[in-house]
Amino acid sequence: MSEGFERRRGGGAVATFTGFEADLIRSLASQLVELLRNEVAAPSASDDPLEQLLDFSGPTTEPEDPVLARLFPTAYPDDEEAAGEFRRFTEGALRDHKARAAVQVIDCLEEAGLPTELGEDGLVVDVELDREQSVTWMKSFTDIRLALATRLGVEEDDEDYWMALPDEDPRTHVYDIYQWVGYLQETLVDALTR
């Protein structure tokens, strides 16, 4: 198992992943991109030239998918009209930003290459991130963890529930992935702040 990220000389971070771990991160990031790009807003029918120029054609209602609702919470829960306008002007750009960040994670793993070097755990992939890439990975890890937590129904202070699940329960393995991504995120933060 990966020991997570370490500080890279000159800034940024480095990590060594097994081929399986690199594939898992790639898969999680790909699923996030697919989810973010799945719902496309209808084009704006506005006559406002500024609105047409800036393409404020985002959705005006909360996403039906609970993960998307968690990633894009309602800004004004007590004012439906203001919430819809805020969502229309911001959600499209936010979705695109999150999707581009996840694509950058995938691209970094692709640039690192296929697992070819033999390490203690078998074939390994070495990833080197500059500071900007590190921040992008941290943001994507946050989105991936929110998606996993939402799908699983993870709540604050419910670790005992998850630890008590039997190994045969498929949620146990997804929860392990959720915890592992959190561990990677924590080591990445530590590598950047040391």
Rank of each mutant, 00 (worst) to 15 (best):
D96V: 02
D167G: 09
K139Y: 05
I25F: 12
L152H: 08
A29C: 11
D169G: 11
D23E: 13
R171C: 10
R70E: 11
I106Y: 03
P115R: 06
V189G: 07
N38W: 11
T16G: 08
L114H: 04
I144G: 01
E81M: 10
I25M: 14
G119Y: 02
D190N: 12
E6W: 08
I144M: 15
L123P: 06
G153T: 08
Y175F: 15
P115F: 04
H173A: 11
L94C: 00
P73M: 09
D126F: 08
G58R: 07
G11I: 06
L123F: 11
D143R: 00
V127A: 04
R26Y: 09
E91M: 07
T16R: 09
H173G: 02
A83C: 05
G10P: 05
A29G: 10
R100L: 07
E132Y: 06
I177H: 01
Y161D: 00
E117K: 11
I106H: 03
R95W: 01
A42V: 02
R9H: 08
D121Y: 04
E186V: 03
G92C: 03
A13C: 08
F86R: 04
A22P: 04
H173P: 00
E51P: 00
S140V: 11
H97L: 11
T16L: 06
D48E: 10
A82H: 12
Y175P: 00
T74V: 15
E186Y: 13
L50A: 12
A15P: 05
V127H: 02
V181I: 12
A101V: 08
D48K: 02
T193P: 02
A164H: 03
F72E: 01
A83Q: 06
E85Y: 12
L53C: 03
S44N: 10
D47K: 13
D143C: 08
L146S: 09
G119K: 00
R7Y: 00
R8L: 13
P166L: 12
F89C: 11
L50P: 00
P115L: 05
R7E: 07
L32P: 06
P49E: 15
L28F: 06
E62P: 04
E168T: 12
T136A: 05
M138V: 00
F89L: 15
E64P: 10
G4Q: 11
Y178N: 02
Q179H: 05
V174N: 04
L118E: 15
V174E: 14
L148W: 03
G182E: 03
V105W: 04
D55C: 09
Y76C: 02
L109K: 05
D167I: 06
T172Y: 11
R145Q: 14
G153A: 04
D157H: 07
R171Y: 09
P73W: 08
F17S: 01
E168F: 01
A191L: 01
A83S: 13
P43M: 02
G58K: 06
T74I: 13
T187P: 05
T172K: 15
L50F: 15
L36H: 08
T60N: 07
Y183E: 07
R37Q: 13
E110M: 05
M138S: 03
L50H: 11
D23M: 05
T116M: 08
R8M: 07
L129V: 03
M1E: 05
E3D: 14
R9M: 03
W162Q: 02
L146F: 04
E6R: 13
R100K: 10
Y175E: 06
D96C: 01
Q133S: 09
E155G: 09
R37D: 14
A41H: 07
Q52K: 14
W137G: 01
L68M: 15
